[in-house]
Measured scan of single mutants.
Amino acid sequence: MSIQHFRVALIPFFAAFCLPVFAHPETLVKVKDAEDQLGARVGYIELDLNSGKILESFRPEERFPMMSTFKVLLCGAVLSRVDAGQEQLGRRIHYSQNDLVEYSPVTEKHLTDGMTVRELCSAAITMSDNTAANLLLTTIGGPKELTAFLHNMGDHVTRLDRWEPELNEAIPNDERDTTMPAAMATTLRKLLTGELLTLASRQQLIDWMEADKVAGPLLRSALPAGWFIADKSGAGERGSRGIIAALGPDGKPSRIVVIYTTGSQATMDERNRQIAEIGASLIKHW
C-alpha cells in the first residue's frame, strides 16, 4: 500500500482519535458579512469528516447552483462504474471539434489522439474542462443518470439537468442544476469515506481534487503551510461562485467545507476574496 493510499485508508482512524471539535460562531459572522459585502445569498456548511456531524452552517438547506462543483460527483459516478466493471479508466475516447464547448483548455489539445477516461476526469476536476465533463456525462448516460446515481446514494436534493455550459445559467428560483450545502457536503463525505467506492477509487477521487489547479484564489489562499486540501470550485452566471473541499491540518483532511453564493453584482475577484476570507476565519478558529 502506498503512503497516499495509507493516508486515505486511515482518515477515519486518525479522526477518531482527534480531540473533540467545537464550532466557532466567528466564522458564521464572516459568512454573514460576506453576504453584506456581496449583496447576495451565501450558503455555508462545515462537517466533521469522521462523524458527519454538522459543526457550523448557514442557509444549509437553500438551493444554490452547483456550477462546476458537480464534476466531482460526476467522476465519482464514473469511478463507481469502474468498480462495477462497467468502465475502464484506460479506455480512450475520441471526439471532434464539434464536441468542444466553451472553456476546454485540455480537451482542445487532444482532438487528434483523444483522451482516456482517467485523463478526462483529471481534466474535468483539476482544470474544470467543460468538454471533458460533457464527454464523461455521455459515458454514464447524461445528466439524468448522474441525478439517479445521487438518488441511489441517498441524495434526493442534488440534481443535474443540463450539460456544460448551460448548467451554469443560475436563474433565480430555478431548481435545475442545483444542490443544497448540506446535501453536497453529505454526498461528498460519502464519496470520500464511505463504502460506495473502493479504496482505490476513493484515493483516485481525492487525488484529482488535491491536484486542483484553478481554485488557488479561494480556500487555498488562506491555508497555512502543512495543511491538506482537496477541492473543486465552480463559477456561473449572475454572480455565482462555489467551492467544495476536504481539508485539515497535519497533512490530512478532517472536515468537509461547502460554500456557495449566487445573485451578486460583485466582480469575480471580490467573490473570490470573500470566500478566501471565510476560509481564513475557519482556519483561525479551527
Rank of each mutant, 00 (worst) to 15 (best):
H24E: 10
H24W: 07
H24R: 11
P25W: 12
P25N: 13
E26V: 15
E26M: 15
T27R: 14
T27H: 13
L28G: 07
V29D: 09
K32C: 07
D33F: 05
D33W: 03
A34Q: 09
D36R: 15
Q37Y: 04
Q37P: 07
L38V: 06
L38D: 07
G39F: 09
G39A: 10
A40R: 03
A40Q: 07
A40D: 04
R41N: 11
R41H: 15
V42C: 11
G43Q: 01
I45T: 09
E46Q: 05
E46F: 07
L47N: 03
D48S: 05
D48L: 03
D48Y: 03
L49E: 04
L49N: 04
L49A: 12
N50A: 09
S51V: 08
S51A: 08
S51K: 03
G52R: 11
G52F: 10
K53W: 13
K53D: 12
I54P: 14
L55W: 14
L55C: 14
E56I: 04
F58E: 05
R59P: 01
P60K: 10
P60V: 06
E62F: 03
R63L: 08
R63T: 13
F64I: 02
F64R: 00
F64C: 02
M66P: 01
M67G: 13
T69G: 02
F70R: 00
F70I: 15
L73V: 13
L74H: 00
L74T: 10
C75K: 01
A77P: 01
L79C: 13
L79H: 02
L79M: 14
S80F: 13
S80Q: 15
R81K: 06
D83A: 08
D83T: 07
D83F: 03
D83W: 02
G85N: 07
G85E: 07
G85F: 12
Q86A: 07
Q86Y: 15
Q86E: 05
E87A: 15
E87C: 05
Q88F: 05
Q88H: 08
G90Y: 05
R91G: 08
R91I: 07
R91Q: 14
R92H: 11
H94Y: 06
Y95M: 12
S96N: 07
S96F: 06
Q97K: 13
N98P: 08
N98S: 11
L100H: 07
L100D: 02
Y103Q: 08
P105I: 12
V106M: 14
V106W: 15
T107L: 09
H110M: 09
L111Q: 14
L111S: 08
T112F: 12
D113K: 06
G114M: 12
G114A: 08
G114V: 03
M115G: 03
T116Q: 07
T116M: 10
T116I: 05
V117Q: 05
V117N: 15
V117G: 02
R118G: 11
R118H: 12
R118Y: 10
R118K: 13
R118I: 14
L120W: 01
S122C: 07
S122Y: 08
A123E: 06
A123M: 13
A124L: 03
M127N: 14
M127E: 12
M127Q: 07
S128M: 00
S128F: 01
S128N: 01
D129C: 01
N130T: 02
N130R: 01
T131D: 02
A132P: 00
A133D: 01
A133N: 02
A133C: 13
N134H: 10
L135W: 03
L136T: 07
L137C: 06
T138Q: 14
T139D: 15
G141K: 15
G142D: 14
G142W: 01
P143N: 07
P143M: 11
K144E: 08
E145M: 09
E145W: 13
T147V: 04
A148P: 05
A148R: 05
F149P: 01
L150A: 13
H151A: 05
H151S: 06
N152F: 10
M153H: 06
M153E: 04
G154L: 04
G154T: 04
D155Q: 02
D155M: 02
D155G: 01
H156D: 09
V157N: 04
T158N: 02
T158L: 02
T158M: 03
R159F: 14
R159C: 11
R159W: 14
D161G: 06
D161N: 08
D161M: 04
D161E: 05
R162C: 13
W163T: 12
E164N: 01
E164L: 00
E164S: 00
P165M: 12
E166G: 13
L167F: 07
N168C: 05
E169Y: 05
E169P: 08
E169S: 06
N173E: 04
D174E: 07
D174T: 07
E175Q: 07
R176N: 12
D177R: 01
D177Y: 01
D177L: 00
D177I: 00
T178P: 00
T179G: 01
T179Y: 00
M180C: 09
P181S: 08
P181M: 02
A183L: 08
A185E: 00
A185S: 09
T186R: 14
T187Q: 08
T187C: 09
L188T: 06
L188A: 05
L188Y: 14
L191G: 02
L191T: 08
G194Q: 12
G194P: 11
E195G: 11
L196C: 13
L196H: 12
L196V: 10
L196F: 12
L197K: 11
T198N: 05
T198W: 06
L199E: 06
S201W: 07
S201D: 03
S201K: 15
S201C: 15
Q203S: 04
Q203A: 04
Q204C: 12
L205R: 00
L205Y: 02
I206G: 06
D207V: 07
W208C: 07
W208Y: 11
W208M: 10
M209E: 00
M209A: 06
A211M: 15
D212M: 03
D212N: 15
G216C: 09
G216Q: 08
P217W: 13
P217Y: 13
L219Q: 06
R220T: 12
A222M: 08
P224Q: 05
P224M: 06
P224T: 09
F228W: 10
I229M: 14
I229S: 03
A230V: 08
A230D: 00
A230F: 03
A230W: 03
D231K: 11
D231W: 03
K232N: 00
S233T: 06
S233L: 02
S233R: 00
S233C: 04
A235W: 02
A235D: 02
G236Q: 03
G236F: 01
E237A: 12
E237F: 09
E237H: 14
R238T: 04
G239R: 02
R241W: 02
G242P: 00
I243A: 15
I244E: 01
A245F: 03
A245K: 00
A245N: 02
A246P: 01
G248P: 00
G248I: 00
G248Q: 02
G251C: 09
K252G: 09
K252R: 08
K252T: 09
K252H: 05
P253D: 12
R255V: 13
I256D: 01
I256S: 02
V257K: 01
V257N: 02
V257Y: 13
V258C: 06
I259V: 10
I259H: 00
Y260L: 08
T261P: 02
T261C: 13
G263T: 10
G263P: 08
S264E: 04
Q265W: 11
Q265G: 09
T267G: 08
T267P: 08
D269M: 05
D269K: 09
D269I: 05
E270M: 03
E270Y: 03
E270W: 15
E270S: 04
R271F: 14
R271E: 14
N272I: 06
N272Y: 02
R273W: 04
Q274E: 10
Q274S: 08
A276E: 05
E277V: 13
E277A: 12
I278C: 14
I278M: 10
I278H: 01
G279D: 01
A280D: 15
S281A: 12
S281M: 12
S281I: 15
K284M: 06
H285C: 04
W286S: 02
W286Y: 11
